[in-house]
């Protein structure tokens, strides 16, 4: 696990400079429209729009394509099966028993998923997680949830690194990841030790927090400032989303 999103989120582009609150609301509206699309035509337009948005972030294309492929891995079984299982008129001239409706549905699902994922990546890879979470708090997500997420995010990589070292320790003692009960037990032990260390760490974190006068709130100095460029970007985004919705009707 690498903090690559965090790395790219600190780049510079029109997408990066967009105020996180305005960006979140606009892209949420866009995603809401994308989710409800029923025609392949509109879904295709939506996917192209999303890809253009991602391109506006000047992010490395190869990396984005790889990420998109991984994220869609769970979708592929659906796409293969659906043309055969959805009842409807058989596709003329096809050697396989594929229905037109099934093919249509598979294509729609694929384009819709592609569009949603791309918009999601445009958001994640252009906004540092901390800024985004504070923006969400600004938009009404409960403070408690945001604070626990911030702390989780902060400890994620520390814990991940501990886990990696534990697996190295297993590897140098000849552990091989095989499908056997012994291997599973060893990995279960790793999980158990991770939890134990987490418990010990929690106690030290609690003490360190007490020493700094923690009273249950994780405050920040971050201030959001939005100006005309943010409003214009959001207005364009909302208009495009409305356009998609019209095309779909």
């Amino acid at each position: 696990m690498r903090a690559e999103a965090e790395l790219y989120a600190r780049g510079d582009s029109p997408l990066h400079r967009w105020d996180a609150r305005w960006k979140t609301v606009t892209l949420a509206v866009l995603i809401a429209v994308l989710v409800s699309l029923e025609s392949v035509r509109a879904a295709l337009a939506g996917a192209l729009m999303a890809l253009a948005l991602l391109a506006g972030g000047r992010l490395p294309a190869g990396l984005m394509l790889r990420r998109l492929l991984t994220a869609q891995a769970l979708l592929f079984p659906c796409l293969v099966v659906l043309p055969f299982t959805v009842p409807g008129a058989p596709l003329p001239g096809s050697p396989l028993p594929v229905s037109r409706e099934g093919l249509h549905l598979a294509l729609l699902l694929y384009l819709r998923a592609l569009a949603i994922l791309t918009v999601g990546f445009a958001m994640v890879y252009s906004t540092p997680m901390v800024v985004w979470l504070r923006a969400l708090q600004n938009l009404g997500i409960p403070r408690r949830l945001v604070e626990i997420t911030l702390m989780t995010y902060r400890y994620l990589f520390t814990l991940g690194w501990e886990l990696t070292r534990m697996r190295w320790a297993l590897a140098v003692r000849g552990f091989r990841n095989r499908p056997s009960r012994a291997a599973w037990r060893a990995l279960a032990q790793v999980v158990g030790v991770t939890l134990l260390r987490s418990l010990e760490r929690t106690e030290r974190v609690r003490q360190a927090l007490a020493c700094r006068g923690f009273q249950g709130r994780l405050r920040t100095l971050h201030e959001f400032r939005a100006g005309p460029p943010d409003w214009i970007k959001s207005a364009v985004g909302i208009l495009l989303a409305a356009g998609l919705w019209m095309v779909d009707r």
Partner: peptide, 16 residues
């Protein structure tokens, strides 16, 4: 928070 992080990391372990 720490336990959520621990479970997140544990879910990255893969089993053959």
């Amino acid at each position: 928070a720490v336990f959520t992080g621990a479970f997140f990391c544990a879910s990255l372990l893969h089993f053959k």
